[in-house]
């Protein structure tokens, strides 16, 4: 595998072989497509409900005709949702971008060390890091929110998004470290590093000169992954922020559980809040899949 290969390449379908197909194989193939189409329709059904409702007018919305396409198409719901959620979308963007960049940097450093430049006890520390990504965050939430509130007493600006950035960086370290470690372990030949070391490179210069230049694919995967999980997080947002300084997931939840539900607005809000991750998914789908799978498959 070449140094820059990503796991996504393994998803490429095998070359189609042209063999005489029997009746049974033909029947299986037809059944296969029928099933695939059925499952796709089922999976898309909630998306359909979202879309048709978001284009209705609030005045027209009636639960009994919820599944039908709008009698009058309108962007009223979208405008209302955008007006409500826009500030939170901005905050979420800032949060997810900063958090994913910083934790990717830390992950790259750690991954390099754990894969190629170990120290005594590094293996144990790596496993301890890994456990950090499985913990239920409830188990740290009470001390965490206590500490954040204490910090905010002295530094009032450290509320809302800065708090969340810190949390997503810290709790993103394990997964980022894992992705980079696996990437470096398989894609960076140890010989290259050894050679540079013989030439007198330090740990740091071997990293910047040899490792970093071939890291972009892993960075893409990690950034997408971290961006998505920071963007989609709700638990930290709920415990550590409020509606006026929280991310879009908080805003969406508040919108949806408001006292006078405006369904077109709520459904449009769901789409607004999901748009960035959906766009990433559509445009960079291959990397997204790679991000999901990195490390899990040999």
């Amino acid at each position: 595998m070449s140094a820059a290969t990503l796991e996504a390449d393994r998803l490429a379908s095998p070359p189609v072989r042209h063999r005489a197909s029997t009746k049974g194989q033909k029947a299986w193939r037809s059944l296969k497509y029928v099933l695939l189409i059925c499952f796709s329709v089922i999976v898309l059904m909630p998306a359909y409900a979202l879309l048709v409702t978001s284009f209705k007018r609030q005045a027209d919305y009636d639960q009994s005709t919820a599944w039908q396409i709008p009698a009058h198409w309108s962007v009223e719901g979208w405008v209302a949702a955008w007006n409500t959620l826009a500030p939170a979308v901005g905050r979420s963007l800032v949060m997810a971008v900063i958090a994913s960049c910083v934790s990717a940097m830390l992950g790259s450093l750690n991954g390099y060390i754990f894969a190629k430049s170990r120290f005594p006890g590094s293996h144990v520390i790596f496993v301890l890091f890994l456990f950090g990504m499985f913990i239920p965050y409830q188990a740290i939430m009470i001390p965490l929110s206590g500490m954040m509130l204490n910090i905010q007493d002295g530094a009032p600006w450290f509320s809302g998004i800065p708090t969340l950035i810190l949390c997503h960086i810290v709790y993103g370290i394990p997964i980022c470290t894992l992705i980079f470690r696996n990437y470096y372990a398989t894609s960076v030949p140890t010989e290259i590093i050894e050679a540079s070391r013989v030439d007198g490179a330090t740990t740091w210069s071997a990293y910047t000169r040899v490792v970093l230049p071939i890291s972009p694919p892993a960075f893409v995967v990690t950034l997408i992954w971290q961006f998505t999980s920071a963007w989609n997080d709700f638990l930290f947002a709920l415990f550590l922020t409020n509606q006026s300084n929280g991310p879009v997931t908080f805003g969406l939840n508040a919108l949806a559980s408001g006292q006078n539900p405006n369904y077109p607005q709520i459904m449009a809000g769901v789409l607004v809040a999901s748009l960035p991750t959906l766009i990433i998914y559509i445009v960079l789908g291959k990397y997204f899949v790679a991000g999901l799978m990195s490390g899990s498959v040999k």
């Binding site: 206590g146 709920l238 415990f239 550590l240 409020n242 929280g246």
Partner: peptide
């Protein structure tokens, strides 16, 4: 005023401010 103040963070903030003598 905190929007959605019946929510947890606002309550936690109030509780903490009260506990911390602020």
């Amino acid at each position: 005023a905190v929007a959605g103040g019946s929510g947890s963070n606002a309550k936690a903030k109030l509780a903490s401010d009260l506990k911390n003598g602020n």
